[in-house]
Design a protein around this nucleic acid. Structure first.
Lengths: 346, 346
DNA sequence: CTGAAAGCGCTTACAG
DNA sequence: CTGAAAGCGCTTACAG
């Protein structure tokens, strides 16, 4: 294991000053073409790489973006929400394309994440990604803002939230998929998923759902049951509805809108254990279009968030913010993906 | 946005030298308890964070690990193999627990990844993660080794491969799940998945499969069909077998061992479109225990690789290597997860 | 226990 | 077009 070469070694070998080596390596137009070629050739031969720590220290920037992932408070330790993993993939690619490194970190809402990255010059900016109780971290986001930290948040734009955000239109997604079911002739609806302040995304989807029902005078019979975004919670929630139907004689819905695909998986599993057929007796739809949903039985109709575009937008917005350009919130449309669980004839 | 505080600002406020500030902040036992408390309090008040670039440059280490992800050459641009995402999650956690940052990067086998990270002091070591053609990058791994780069590779230990590796016993996994099917009375076997040099993991699984069949005198009737690790490839491969059975009168297998869960998903989908019942007519098993596999119909019997342990082992092995301790290959056992697609009575 | 000083390896004004 | 010099913000021998 030989010693690492420095720019001085190259300067020596090339017969120029170290300053010139630095310029040549950074493709400065100031330096003579011939000199540049010679320096670069020698650098290649020595397997020389610029020391990032030195260069970052001098330039006072790191060309690194930190991705802070907040997990669902309820998710078990080993499993990550597939939707976020898709986002991660897309963000990684977008960073690479823009010449940035990506530092990935899982965080608890309670941690001191709000001051960790940019202050220590480990990253030039931060991407905040996660479901969960946004109210819980609003104050930390505010601190980020007041410190002048560059960051962008995944989520719907929200007047109550400081900072810029890129998100998908959850209200419209909830509205569109509900309207799709209404168009298919469904009349008795249920929504499964948390509807409170703690889960703003789910709440927006629920509000879109309600709006669609109201517009078609179907709101009266609507049911709702809380569930966090797991297969198990979905299973339990629909079990509760089935029990109520049995014991209280409450009518059963003929269409169930789930706040996430994971929840829908649980609903499908529970219904498979009954006489009820999906979609003939009950239509079931999800949200997220995670990879699995194409392969369930029946294949799940769901709402897609464009993770590829989202990652690119998150990264490009953040990079703009880092160079102090003005940036704007971006709200992407949600797209209904029609498969079989909604009962559509295709 | 105020200027970032430095250790000199703190020194000034605390009435001590900058050296003492540095010592206090690093909890050096050399420094007086009182002084330390005072310095730390002031640092907190100023929202001071040590500049990582400066500290790394001085210490000549970065407390950062680079994770290089090599994708399946065939996977589409937007989707990542869920198994690797699970690994990523586990590696991220293990890094955080060990006080390391994690730089994540997707790579093509062809890129110049072999010299990017440690040489530039961006990372102290590298984790190599990916399926694919290991022969293709063997020379680069060798270069890594000769440069003295610290790295650990995910995959089975392999004499032909330089460097230390952590992996799961693919041969034993293939053997165990095949033997499980044999114990259930299956006699006509097929393996779906690439079996060549280009996919060493799949090949080892296939060899374990063959060994089990040979030991029970079932090898003669065995079929095999190539498939990369996608749902579509699995679908196509089983279609091919069904066609052969129709046109050539080849017998149909009563047990199909798939080289990955993704492949098994495709096989299940194809069989669902036939009269054939899984598991009554044909048992189907997968490999990886990705999240989906618990929720297919029927639920997929598969082989689990312990991703949590794998991530921890990868990180701890690498950290040992970084501090120049001797490290050893680690081969984890593979565990059969019994669900319904194998036809086991439970 | 504390301080003055050197130096990690770069980039970039400044001078020519 | 090139070089000598300063300095980014730390950590750590060295001296006391």
């Amino acid at each position: 294991m030989k010693e690492k070469a420095t720019s001085f070694d190259i300067a020596h070998l090339a017969g120029v000053s170290q300053s010139t080596v630095s310029r040549a390596l950074n493709n400065s137009p100031l330096v003579n073409q011939e000199t540049r070629d010679r320096v670069q050739r020698i650098a290649r031969e020595l397997n020389y790489k610029v020391d990032k720590n030195a260069s970052n220290l001098r330039k006072q920037k790191s060309s690194t973006i930190a991705l802070l992932l907040f997990e669902d408070p309820t998710s078990d330790d080993s499993m990550i929400n597939p939707f976020f993993l898709a986002m991660l993939g897309s963000i990684t690619r977008a960073c690479a394309a823009a010449g940035y490194d990506l530092l990935v970190s899982f965080q608890n809402l309670e941690d001191d994440w709000h001051a960790e990255y940019e202050d220590s010059n480990k990253a030039d900016g931060i991407i905040l990604l996660g479901y969960g109780d946004y109210t819980d971290y609003r104050s930390k986001v505010a601190q980020l803002e007041s410190q002048g930290t560059h960051f962008v948040r995944w989520g719907a734009p929200d007047a109550a939230h400081p900072g810029v955000s890129v998100g998908c239109d959850n209200f419209q997604g909830g509205y569109s998929i509900t309207e799709h079911l209404i168009a298919l002739g469904r009349t008795r609806f249920a929504f499964i998923g948390d509807s409170g302040n703690k889960a703003p995304e789910f709440m927006a989807r629920f509000q879109g759902y309600n709006e669609a029902l109201t517009n078609h005078n179907l709101y009266e019979s609507s049911l709702q049951s809380d569930a966090v975004s797991t297969e198990e919670a979905g299973y339990d929630a629909i079990q509760g509805m089935l029990n109520d139907a049995n014991t209280n004689g409450t009518g059963l819905p003929d269409a169930i809108v789930c706040a996430s695909d994971l929840i829908a998986m649980g609903v499908l599993r529970a219904l498979r254990q009954t006489e009820l057929s999906v979609p003939d007796d009950i239509a079931v739809v999800g949200y997220d279009n995670i990879a699995v949903s194409a392969f369930t039985t029946p294949a799940l109709t769901t709402v897609q968030q464009n993770t590829k575009l989202a990652g690119e937008l998150l990264v490009s917005t953040l990079i703009k913010a880092i160079s102090n350009e003005t940036v704007e919130d971006f709200l992407m449309p949600a797209e209904v993906i029609i498969r079989h669980s909604c009962g559509a004839k295709r």
